[in-house]
Design a protein around this nucleic acid. Structure first.
Lengths: 339, 339
DNA sequence: GTGAAAGCGCTAACAC
DNA sequence: GTGTTAGCGCTTTCAC
């Protein structure tokens, strides 16, 4: 019972009395090989506990078997969740994923993007969070890329994104229908420069309802939860809007802290709708009404389009927009006006 | 300006008029190579945009360059955060990480563990969440393992864990000092079987203060946030304890929803301490007092001990216990008794 | 239908 | 101090 080294196609070949090439073909279920020998070899491999070496395989195939991903943040669960789903999908297809997070700095985002040309990956998944001016950089990669974010029709890369414009529009309309008048949008202003269409959806709904200067109703929270908290604390101690539309559930939790400190009640004093439908949004003191984005479908789409492109570089570029769904919970109420 | 294939040690060797072996050595900064030629080759590699192929390197070195990890859950941010930190540390050392989540099923945990013997990895990081009876299974792996969880002194694997016992003890003592009397512990009972020492710390503190039958004060919430919510809703509509000690911030958010629905206030009606110090615990309507566990240090320790072991299998087994720190926030108050 | 042999890009034992 | 060579485990072209 000695510790023996793992079986390889050579040891199998020897045992089976055939060549290594035959074993290789048989294990890849190559139709060229006689069905009987094929089965026989497969059975024997199974029995010997044979495991393909991805390393050797990939080296031989001239690929790396890794896809590199750039995501915005480690703290917002939507991204770690998406990352986990991307991982799962990729692992199913025998790819591994090299994860990177830009966190809250444009410099870091650029740096990582540049470092991507040093890392050999078969393809890239990019969530731009500070700038959409990455084209030259991504072109230099010289490898398939899929962007998670809205792009113009002529963008040469695959892209999948969420219809935040429509989502924000619907959410705002809903608030208005509930009798809310003084509504503010809160979010990271920098996101607009890389295709965040929530503000524009908000503005469209507000102007459509005859409200003046909706642009002034947009408040920059900064990128992270702490800055959202601080901004909200300052803002809400001066102003008492009826309702808030918040860029993400994540930032909403920052705002909620400010609301709690100011002894305001949700939704009686202030209604809230946010975006994403992270698991936490359904828990905590007040379950949040939110615009849900599809997780599994999105992750699947991201890795599938990328892998198809990797395996066939001549495929046409695909741009795919996904819809949101409103999840009604307890953070919005009907506004009763007594005047 | 044609698309040329990447430089290899061979193309470099040719250009430099030396052998490939020399290039390889120079790039590994091997002292054997004349310092001048070394620098020269390094410079040229830089200039030509040479990138080492990890595939070829690892194949040659007879390793895979991957470490496989089994974590409990994709939803509790503490694990995704820890995962991200583990990833970072591993990437620094040129290892990639194969992540797996057992989610809420013992079957899945077992299945993944078994599948680990099929995946060639250089080492394993295991967070047991349902059972600690994995020894035979882990032994079969025949590779270095580090366990994140408490183990007995004779456990043959590396392990690092958090001193939850002490943490729970201190948290409970603190509640008692604040005048809380009727205190309950809520958490996933199944965790005890794999070394969760929070309940025992809680019991020790409670009995030490002369409270009778502290065992009855332990409530099983199940594994996930939804079951924690349901359990709390049922429990709290019948009983009104002074304070709750909750196994994790994550589960606390489930409990908070129940508290919110029952129109109870934190901390006026009920005080709360939980564990982990995830980012969310500092936000939401009420910032949570929590027992913080070290993230960065933990991740570093996990991958460092594993990698040392991988590179030197004769190293002694290390068991390392990490301390918690109490983070005072707003979910606990002094209990004023009027009687 | 199967085998021989070269090649993927690197490392390391051995020779000089 | 540097070169030669074999080898890591697989795929695939070309022969037979």
């Amino acid at each position: 019972m000695k510790t023996q080294t793992n079986p390889t196609i050579y040891t199998l070949a020897e045992k089976a009395g055939v060549s290594a090439a035959t074993v290789s073909r048989a294990l890849n279920n190559d139709k060229l090989i006689n069905i009987k020998t094929r089965r026989q070899i497969q059975k024997m491999a199974e029995k010997e506990g044979y495991k393909k070496s991805p390393l050797a395989r990939n080296l031989s195939l001239g690929r790396t078997g890794v896809i590199a991903a750039l995501l915005p943040s480690i703290n917002n669960p939507i991204y770690t969740y998406l990352a986990a789903k991307i991982l799962e999908r990729a692992q199913e297809r025998n790819y591994s994923v090299f994860l990177n997070y830009s966190e809250d700095s444009m410099e870091r985002e650029k740096k990582i993007l540049n470092s991507f040309s040093n890392i050999q990956a078969d393809g890239f998944i990019i969530f731009p969070s500070f700038s959409d001016r990455h084209e030259k950089c991504l072109k230099k990669l010289n490898r398939p890329v899929v962007i998670r974010g809205s792009v113009s029709g002529k963008c040469p890369f695959n892209a999948v994104w969420i219809d935040f414009h429509k989502g924000a529009y619907e959410a705002t309309e809903y608030l208005i229908k509930q009798g809310q008048k003084n509504i503010r949008y809160m979010g990271f202003a920098g996101a607009v420069s890389c295709g965040d269409e929530r503000p524009s959806g908000f503005i469209k709904a507000m102007s459509g309802n005859g409200m003046k200067s909706p642009y002034k109703n947009i408040i920059d929270t900064g990128f992270n939860i702490e800055s959202a908290y601080r901004t909200a604390l300052k803002f809400l101690s001066q102003t008492k809007p009826d309702a808030l539309l918040i860029q993400s559930d994540y930032l909403a939790f920052g705002v909620l802290r400010a609301i709690g400190e100011l002894k305001l009640r949700v939704p009686e004093d202030i209604s809230i709708i946010s975006f994403d439908n992270i698991e936490f949004s359904n828990y905590g003191t007040i379950p949040l009404t939110t615009m849900s984005q599809p997780f599994d479908e999105q992750a699947k789409l991201l890795v599938n389009t990328l892998l198809s492109r990797i395996n066939n570089e001549t495929l046409p570029v695909v741009h795919k927009k996904l819809d949101m769904k409103m999840i009604l919970r307890s953070s919005v109420c009907k506004k009763i006006r007594n005047k």
